[in-house]
Design a protein around this nucleic acid. Structure first.
Lengths: 351, 351
DNA sequence: CTTTAGCACTCAGGGAATATGAGTGCTAAA
DNA sequence: TTTAGCACTCATATTCCCTGAGTGCTAAAG
């Protein structure tokens, strides 16, 4: 039940010209473009077949054809050429990512921005710890008399700190003691485990000391929570407005609101834990209502050993899949490569 | 050359109904709304005068009038009522801000988001150190054998850290020494001064040690740079699309791109250092081209002693100034108050 | 001098009618 | 199986006309 070669060429020509023009494609245009030496009538017959098979749709009787979701799917799976990036583009990407290593978030943000510029579609990014993360060590640094800095390092080598004020001051030995308790009782525990451990400790500890411990542990659980959370960010949402399917604001507004974090939480079906690297969701394949007429192309990458990120492109079903997938996979590879090399060692002193 | 009372009432009625309806206001509507017991003909005469004086404009001969920039200006300066917030609104604002104190950036982000929801316009925020900031102290914490954590605290009590890898390891005394050099030679210096000091030090120090020092100092300068930088963020840009003046995408796109950080650097004329608290820029008063048909209402607030922030609302010239200024000033006051109380003491252990 | 009624005039926006043309399906011949 | 030919469909653009809100001006009234 495979399609004839000719049908495939016709389908491909239709998908590609529709992607380029956003207008229904007629038999005449296909005849010229598909490079087949047959008449438009023949093409029409084939197109009728393809419509019957569900790969094409007709907006109305007297218009050309546009690809259906199934048509795009077939195109993406079998027909599409693997596009090459130009040297300028790879250069651009490398420049953007290989800046002197900054904070994770910023690198990801920048990646999103550049990908959006290169693809002309909005881009979203997420990152989260893959599995259970724990605190690897605590450090406390006295500052003046009435405050100390709590430094928390996770087992994925993320380090966070917080300034904690203490009205009554704290002696050096007290600080040592505090640090000892933290490092002996709370290292290696997940967030929930830390909270349990804290409860147990309460009865066995002097109230004053417990107060301080719970402040630091509270901060540590926040850090773990934040690391485990999937931070959703977007770049280039205004690119949406460049595509005719969003010319009407009724279409554009909900999607833009959805992307710009204004609709609350329930975000993209970004399957962080999928094994596959590249994932294409075409229109109705999206579960989420706001994305029904939208395609999402996303790729995941590793951030060191313990985290994983997703970077994805959002656009109309009529998306330039060939262009997007090429750029996207290059990005995902680059990110994996650079985080593999650089994390958990954020900066190598070059010499 | 002051306007008669009646003219003022007419102007005010026109501004307010135009703000509400977005459509040119005719003499009949004014007669009903202004509460003056005069005929439409009289109103027409007055409106003709106001047009002549430059406070009103006529889109075309047979339409009603709309306020000119000067008209808005007069309205904002003299005619506008000071609006009260409802209890629900102040409650909402307090809830949003008085969460347990998180990082500065997040509080500001949340403030922007809530203000945007309450005002139905996009909101931008910025924050930066007011004056010269310096490092107050350095701490170094050895982690395993091949890395240490550098902790930098600025004089505005911001603490940042970074994990630094060292291929060759480091002995405890070496670390002590490093720390001593940093704390004796680089505390109290501005970014530029640190770089100078680093240059001078180079000749007098062993290459290996200098390498490490320059890594830590490099990080410190980054921290100072980041603090001094004005971080521009926006929330709720999609609110733009709700206003008829941005129904045409040609209008909406550039402004949205401008706001969503896609057009590079040269951002809002946000005068961080202005003495005034509230600042209203109406349409052509904006220097920037992208904002020519746009009004900006902004307020500044203090973040502790050493930083200052701006929060502002962006919208069409036909903006609901009364509503916006009321909410905005409440926000600015709340922010100043909360940062005054909570910073530089980010969290008081309650007891 | 100010206000008002009356009136002719303007002009954007909406709706119906019409024209255009790209594209189709079908039939019959090659 | 392919192709030429033809009648048919229908979205879109164009034109034209109508409607009505709003204006400015004039002349009378207060």
């Amino acid at each position: 039940m495979a399609l004839s070669d000719r049908k495939k060429r016709i389908l491909r020509a239709i998908v590609e010209t529709y992607i380029a023009t956003a207008e229904p494609v007629g038999s005449k245009a296909v005849a010229q473009l598909a490079g087949l030496d047959v008449s438009t009538a023949t093409i029409r017959n084939e197109m009728a077949d393809l419509t019957e098979l569900g790969y094409l749709e007709q907006p109305h009787t007297s218009a050309g054809r546009i690809p259906s979701a199934a048509g795009y799917r077939l195109y993406v799976n079998e027909l599409m050429d693997r596009q090459q990036l130009t040297i300028q583009e790879t250069q651009r990407i490398n420049d953007a990512l290989n800046l002197k290593m900054e904070e994770l978030d910023r690198v990801i943000d920048r990646a999103g921005k550049v990908l959006s510029q290169l693809s002309d579609y909005p881009v979203f990014t997420m990152a989260a710890a893959k599995e259970r993360i724990t605190v690897k060590r605590f450090d406390l640094l006295m500052v003046e008399d009435n405050a100390f800095i709590a430094v928390v390092m996770t087992d994925s080598s993320v380090v966070k700190n917080k300034l904690i004020h203490i009205p009554n001051g704290l002696s050096d030995p007290q600080l040592q003691m505090l640090s000892a308790v933290l490092n002996s009782s709370f290292v290696g525990l997940s967030r929930e485990e830390m909270e349990e451990a804290l409860d147990k400790l309460e009865t066995r500890t002097a109230p004053g000391a417990f107060e301080l411990i719970s402040l630091v542990v509270g901060f540590a659980t926040e850090v773990l929570a934040e690391q485990g959370q999937q931070k959703f960010r977007t770049a280039g949402i205004t690119h949406l407005l460049e595509h005719p399917e969003y010319r009407s604001l009724d279409k554009a507004k909900p999607l833009m609101a959805y992307l710009s974090e204004e609709s609350d939480e329930p975000h993209l079906p970004a399957t962080l834990d999928t094994g596959k690297n590249m994932n294409i969701l075409i229109g109705p394949e999206n579960v989420n209502d706001a994305l029904k007429d939208t395609s999402v192309v996303m790729a995941s990458y590793d951030i060191g050993d313990n985290m994983r990120g997703v970077i994805g492109v959002v656009g109309p079903t009529r998306m330039d899949y060939a262009k997007v997938t090429a750029r996207l996979s290059y990005f995902a590879d680059s990110l994996t490569r650079m985080f593999g090399k650089e994390l958990p060692a954020p900066e190598e002193p070059e010499e």
